[in-house]
Nucleic acid binder design. Structure first.
Lengths: 347, 347
DNA sequence: CTGTTAGCGCATTCAA
DNA sequence: TTGAATGCGCTAACAG
C-alpha cells in the first residue's frame, strides 16, 4: 500500500497534526521537526490522497461564471459546458453558478463582479469586456482575495490571475495560412467579417490574419472589415452587399460572430474559400455542405474545465501548471468533424 | 449541503447498511424496504460521492498498458503519458504499469496478456497486433473477467471491451482532402509511405486517403505504397528512390511510421506537399521548417486517460459514455502548433 | 510548539 | 432481512 500520514508520523516520530502542518505548510512547527517530517515524506515517497483531503476538508468552492447573455451559440455552448461540469463537480467539491450579463455591457459586468465578491465566492471566471472600469472591478476582486480568470477574451493590466483561451494572434495566422493555401494562385480579394472591433480577441485575430496574408508569395487584397455586431440580419446584409459589389471575391474570414448571417448570405455558393471561428450548429452544417471550408475552434469544455482547475488552485494558493492549461486551437474540415453535436471529455 | 447516506437512512427510516445495499443493489433487502429507500433517494436528489466511496472501498485497480518496445516516438510518447497519468492516478486509486513487448510480435503480446491475467490485474490496455492468436488471448482475458481495451490499433472480433483511438478511415480522408486542396491544380502523382500494411490502422488510413483522392475533381495518380517497416534507414532510401525516379512528384502522405527517414530524405525540399501522422520532435521540426505541411495527430494523453476511465468503468461494471470517449483527430499546421514539446491536460 | 480526538461520506464486517 | 460499529486517508478543532 501507499504510505499514509500515519506512516510518516511513525517514521518521523511525531503526531498526525504535525505531519499535517508541514504538509500544508502551516505555521507552528520548529525547523528541526519540520525537517524530520520532510525527510520521512521523501524517503517514503509519500503523495497526498487529494480525494481524502477534500473529503476531510468538506469545504466547498463556490465558483461563478459571468457570461454574455443573448443567443450567441458559442456563449450558450460555454454555459452548457459549465452546467455539464457542475454535474461532475460534486467530487471536486465545487459549486458552479452562471451569471448572465448583457453582451458588451461594461457596467453590467462590473456589477456582476462586485456582486460575486460580495457573495464571498471563491473564484470568478468572466468573459472580459475591454473597458477600464472592468479592469478596476477585477482589481477590486483581486484585492479582496477572490481569484479571477478571464475567459475567451482577455483583459491585460487588470490584475486577473490567469487567462483561459486561445492565442488569438496565432488563430488569425492559422486562418490566413489556410486561406492562402486553399486559394493557391487564384486571384481576387478576401473579405473579413467581425462582430465588433472593440473586442480584443477579434482584433488580435485580424492582426494575425493580415500579417500572414501579407507574407504570402501571392499578393492579395483584404477588403475593409465588415462589422456585423453579432447580429444575424446585419451580418447577412453586409456580406450580401460585399458579394454583390465584389464579383471577383475569393474568400471570406469570419472572426467569430455573425456566422448565421454569413451562411445565410452565402446560400449555396461553394466557390468561395470561407474560414470561420467556432464550431456550432450553423458552422457544422455549412462545413458539411461545403459552404464553409474550415472552422477554427476553441473547445468550450476544455476552457471551462481549465478555468475551474485554475480557480481552485488559486483558491487553495497552489501553483498553476501553465503548460497543462494551454487551450488548443482546433482545425476542423469536413473530414475530421467530430461525430455528434455533443462535445467530448475529460479531461 | 448535498444529501448523504445518512439523510436517506433517516427519511427512509432504515439503517445505513440497508441504504448501502440498495445503492449498490446487493441482495438481502425486501421489496418494500427497497422501494422506501429508492423513494427517499429520489425525493432528496441524492448523488453518491464517488471520492468518498472509493476511499471507503480502499480498493486499488492495477491496470497494465502493453506497448510496443523500440524507439517509435509515438509509442514512447504514449508510455510517457501513462507515467504522467500514473502520477495523478493516486486519487483515482489506480495503479498503472507498462509492459513493453517487441513491436509486431504477436507471440510476445499473447504472453504479456496472459501474464497480466495471471497477475490478477483489473484491466488491460494493449496496442493490438492483427493476428488470430492475439484475438484468442484477448478472448481468454475477457473470459477470466479482465476487461481489455485496444489502443491506437484495433482488433475486431477479439472480444475486446472497447477501442481507444481515432477513426483511421476518417484520418485518411482528412489527409486526402488536405492534400487535394493544398495541391490545387498542380499536376503530378503522390506517394504513400507506410510502416507495414499488416497493421490495421495503416490500412484504414490508406483506404480513406485513396477514396478521397479518387473523388477529387483533379485526377491524380497514387504511386505504389512504400513500406518502410518503421525503420529510419529503409524509409529514407525508399523515399529517396521515389524522389529520384519521379521528378514530377507532387506530394507524400506518411501513414505514421518512418517520419524520421522521410524528413531526412526530403532534406530541404519544401516544394512537395507533405502530410504526416503523429506530432513528434521530428514532425514538429519539419512543420516549422516547411518540409511538412500538415500533421494529423491523435493525442496520446487523451488516449491514455480515456483508456483508464474505460477500464475502471468496466472493472466496476459501470457503463461507458461513448460520446465522451471519442478520440479526436487533431490537425496541426505551422501556425497552430502547441507551444512546448510538452503535452497538455485535462483533462 | 506539539499531540488527541473527532469527523468528512461511504463500504463493510459482524451481530441481531 | 436488517442494524451497529469500525475504518479508508486526511483535516481541524481543541487541549496540553
Amino acid at each position: 500500500m501507499r504510505p499514509t500520514v500515519h506512516d510518516i508520523a511513525d517514521t518521523a516520530g511525531v503526531s498526525l497534526a504535525t505531519v499535517d502542518r508541514v504538509l500544508n505548510d502551516r505555521p507552528g512547527v520548529r525547523g528541526v521537526t519540520k525537517a524530520k517530517v520532510e525527510a520521512a515524506i521523501a524517503t517514503l515517497g509519500y503523495v497526498r490522497d487529494v480525494a481524502a483531503a477534500n473529503l476531510a476538508k468538506s469545504r466547498v468552492y463556490p465558483l461563478v461564471f459571468i457570461l454574455p447573455a443573448g443567443d450567441n451559440p458559442f456563449m450558450r455552448g460555454l454555459e452548457a459546458e459549465v452546467r455539464r461540469a457542475g454535474f461532475h463537480s460534486a467530487a471536486e467539491r465545487t459549486r458552479l453558478s452562471v451569471v448572465p450579463v448583457p453582451a458588451f455591457d461594461a457596467a453590467a459586468l462590473v456589477a456582476a463582479i462586485d456582486g460575486a465578491v460580495a457573495d464571498q465566492v471563491s473564484g470568478i471566471a468572466a468573459v472580459a469586456v475591454d473597458a477600464p472600469e472592468v479592469a478596476a472591478a477585477i482589481g477590486r476582486a483581486h484585492a479582496a482575495g477572490v481569484p479571477v480568470v478571464t475567459l475567451v477574451s482577455d483583459l491585460a493590466n487588470s490584475g486577473r490571475d490567469h487567462f483561459v483561451g486561445v492565442d488569438n494572434v496565432a488563430a488569425g495566422r492559422t486562418a490566413g495560412s489556410l486561406m492562402g493555401r486553399f486559394l493557391g494562385n487564384r486571384p481576387g480579394p478576401v473579405a473579413v467579417l467581425a462582430g465588433s472591433m472593440r473586442v480584443r480577441d477579434h482584433r488580435e485575430r485580424l492582426d494575425g490574419f493580415l500579417a500572414t496574408i501579407a507574407e504570402m508569395p501571392v499578393g492579395r487584397a483584404v477588403l475593409p472589415v465588415l462589422e456585423g455586431q453579432d447580429d444575424p440580419k446585419l451580418s447577412l446584409s453586409l456580406v450580401s452587399g460585399c458579394l454583390a459589389s465584389t464579383p471577383d471575391l475569393a474568400g471570406i474570414y469570419s472572426l467569430g460572430a455573425g456566422n448565421q448571417g454569413l451562411v445565410a448570405a452565402l446560400a449555396d455558393r461553394t466557390d468561395l474559400c470561407v474560414i470561420a471561428h467556432e464550431l456550432t450548429a450553423h458552422t457544422r452544417a455549412a462545413l458539411e455542405t461545403g459552404i464553409i471550408d474550415a472552422v477554427l475552434n476553441q473547445d468550450a469544455g476544455h476552457e471551462v474545465r481549465s478555468a475551474i482547475r485554475v480557480l481552485r488552485a488559486k483558491a487553495d494558493g497552489l501553483p498553476v501548471i501553465a503548460a497543462q492549461e494551454r487551450i488548443r486551437l482546433d482545425i476542423f474540415i469536413k473530414d475530421n468533424l467530430p461525430a455528434g453535436p455533443d462535445e467530448d471529455d475529460n479531461n
